[in-house]
Each structure stands twice: as structure tokens, then as C-alpha cells.
Design a protein around this nucleic acid. Sequence first.
DNA 1: AAACTGTATACTGTAGGCAGTCGACAACAG
DNA 2: CTGTTGTCGACTGCCTACAGTATACAGTTT
Lengths: 249, 249
Amino acid sequence: MVRSELANSGAAPKIPRPTTLRESVFEAILELIVNGSLSPGQHLAESELAELLGVSRQPVREALQMLSGEGWVDLRPGHGAFVHAPTVQEADQLLAVRALLETESARLAALNSDAAGVARLREVCARGLRALEADDIDTSVAANSELHALVTELSGNAVLAELASQVSRRVRWYHTPVARQRGRDSWEEHDQLINAIEARDEIRAAEIMRDHTEHTRSSYLEQRASEPVEPEEPAPAARRRRPRSLSAS
Amino acid sequence: MVRSELANSGAAPKIPRPTTLRESVFEAILELIVNGSLSPGQHLAESELAELLGVSRQPVREALQMLSGEGWVDLRPGHGAFVHAPTVQEADQLLAVRALLETESARLAALNSDAAGVARLREVCARGLRALEADDIDTSVAANSELHALVTELSGNAVLAELASQVSRRVRWYHTPVARQRGRDSWEEHDQLINAIEARDEIRAAEIMRDHTEHTRSSYLEQRASEPVEPEEPAPAARRRRPRSLSAS
DNA sequence: AAACTGTATACTGTAGGCAGTCGACAACAG
DNA sequence: CTGTTGTCGACTGCCTACAGTATACAGTTT
């Protein structure tokens, strides 16, 4: 049992393990949804997606069901999949849940994190701030998500982190189009949050996170209130049956 | 547009709308898991389940993926599905998350509920207490779940209710085998909770719910600590490949 | 005898195909 | 002209079949 010195050659090239098709398809469709290629309420025909992505219907079906499980699409038996169309009320509720989960995460992170964790937080924070000053919105937004994800990870509660992650993704989808600004203040708050975590001040960490998430919540509601015009289809139901083509927008 | 007096004949016989197979299969497998016919770590071969349930592999696959989405089974690409084997740590984390969600639900319920809601709460509570006194454990446990579900519904936050529902089901699975007692105290606390909700006392409602869930959490940990013996397979990985048959236990 | 290699087996992942069902449009009756 | 019924088209849900892959066992070599 010499274990063949090949085993500890260290550098694992990580052969491009072709993950299952359904996961690739899942990611692909999710991307189409978040970047707006597929608009809310739109009917997703399995055949079209299959052809578009160059696979058979089966992986598409499975991907759609995964998406349904996370609330990205609605699956009506016998009718197929429709991109989920969030109501203002639902978005608000989701933001409330996110506030709850992230507040608890921050509290636990303040209790459990160590120096290494704080260092990682500071690194991400610095990166986000740099991107903000370079007007690199996408990188800044990404860093924002990463920071929040890191806080939940440092909470030490994997279940909580998993839930918060899912909720966060959806929040970002609802939120991204309306709140491009609110950058500077946000990163100020992040900095204070990290300070509180470093100081092991659970009360303050929770408080800052709650205020932080409530800020984004109210900014979202303001934005929505200021443009009450529905972007598409003022008609009651958005149920046009074949929206011409998928590559719209 | 007389709408044919057939429309309002009221009594909708609710034709046994044949729900999709995948949902039936989902329910069936879930039942097999919670009642212990399928033990944690066990490998679930699609073909066997398909044969056992008298359907093809396709609905089974889809059901397994739904189960995976809710954390009941683990899906390892290329290897198939395995009944999720919760660690003590994970169960504890899940209980913590449940405590968080339900506490918030109780707080919101105290803010939003009306007389009708309170009446429904009292009805369920009475039913549970009656079942308890009749030593009807199953009914009592069901009423308990129903009560908690009702509280989350009365919170007015559908997203929160949905999340709490999922978490609750898994908690019940982990929790049921170890905590059969703790009936009387539990319903006492329920009663107080309803009083607080009726009085619109959000602080107290949240407090009671937190204590309530923490009680079950600590009782769970005690129970687990008192029987540290792992029921099956003291070996590292529970990966026996074909456990003979599905109909075990 | 121990370790490696080749082969067999079983299962998953994916594709293609068929029947059932739903919605829409057109023809028809009142 | 309005309301009803029949027919067409399209899509979903499910089944069957095939290819790829991981595991276990046996044979072979050192």
C-alpha cells in the first residue's frame, strides 16, 4: 500500500468534470432569467429550451423542476413552466425574511467568528469599495453578495447559510433592476458591521445588519412606488401563449 | 352571460383530479422515509422504487429531485440518491433556524391576527389537548403541527410561512422518534401563546414562542445525549450498496 | 502472497417517442 | 348576432431504450 506517489502530486488539475446536464441547464436558464432574457410570466416550453440549449427535453424538465423548487418558475401541471412574476407584496415579504435571516447570521457571526474570518470580511469589503470607486457596478454588486454570504458562513450554522443564500439570490433578482445606487452608504454600513463582529458585539452586529437590510427594503419600496407603471402587459394576466421567441430582449 | 346556473351549484364534488405521478411518488417516498421504512444513508435505486410503486423510472427521478430540494435525500451525481442522514449538529442547527422563523411568525401574528384567526387557533389547541388526554399521540402531534402552521399563516408573510413549513417537516422527522412525551407542557405554552397573540402583545408572543421552541430543542439534545449509541452501522460511511430490499423494517 | 489489470454487472444520465389533455378557433344552432 | 359544440394544434407527462460510468470480482503477474 505505497499509495503510488501519484496520489500526493498535489496539483489536482480538477479535470473539467462534466457536471450533469441538468445542472448546466439549470444555471443557463437561471442566467436567462436574472439577466432578463426571459421576462416574468413568460411561458417556457420545454421543446424550445431544449432546442435552444442543444439538449433533449429531459434535462430541461429536471432543471425546470429545480428552478421551481427555489421559486424561480411556477410549474402548473399540464401547462408547463412560467417564469415567476413576483408581486410587490411578495418581494416585500421576501425582503423581510432576508432581513430576519441575515440579522441572525450577523449575530451568530459576532459570537463565532475568528481573526481569519474577519480578515476575509475586510478583504471582500475593500474589494467592493474599490470596485465602487471605479464605477464597476457589477463587481461591486458581486462583492456585496459575497460579503453577505461570508457573514452567513461565519455564523457557523450551515442550514441558516443555505437558506439565506437562496433567499438572497431571489432578492437580488427583484432588487437589482431598481436599486443601482445606494452604493456608498451600503459599504459604510458593511464596514461598521465588520467592526462589530470583530468586537464580538452580537447586539450591535445584529442591529447594524437589521438596519442595513431595512434600508435596502425601504429603498426598494420607494423605487417601486415612484414608478408604479408596470413595464409590460398592463393587461390582467400575462399569459400570451407563445411569446414569439426565447431570444427576446 | 347568464353563467349557467350550473356554475354556482356550490357543492364542488372535486373530481379526484389525478395529480401528477411525480407528486404521488414524492408523497409515497416521503412517507417511507418518515415512517422509517427507508433508513438514513440507504441507497435508493430508481429501478427498485419504480418497480415497488408500479411506475416507470421517470416520475421516480423527478420525485427524488424534489426530495433532494427539500433536504430529504442527497443526490450524488452518477451514484444516485441516498436518504439524508442528519448529524446531531445539523439537527441542532435546523432547530435553531426553526426557532428563529417561528419566533418571528409569532411576533407578526400578534401584530396582524384578527378575532377569526384567534378562534381558529383556540379550536386547534382544544383539539390537541383533547387528543392528548385521550392518549391519541398521533392526533396530538398532528394538531401541534397544524397549530404552528396556523401561526405562521397568521403572520401574513407567505414566504415566511412556506419556509417555516419546510423546516418544520424536517424537524418533526428528526424529532419525532426521540420526543414522544413533553405533551402537557407544550400545550400549556400554546395556550399562553394564543393569549399573547389575542392581546396583540408582540413582545410576549415572540418570547413565548422562542422559549417554546428552545424547550423542544434542549429536550431533543438531552434525549440524543442520553442515547449516544448510533442505531446502525458504527462504521464510518453508511454506503452499503444494495441493502437487500426496500421493504425492510 | 500481494498488488495490479481486465472483465462483468448494475446503475445512472440522456434521448426519443407516444398517448392524454388543454386551449383556441371555426362551424353551427338558437 | 350570441352562445354552444366540434375539431385542430401544441404541449406536457410518462414510458422505453440506449449509452456512459462506477464498482466488484476474478485472473494474471511479479
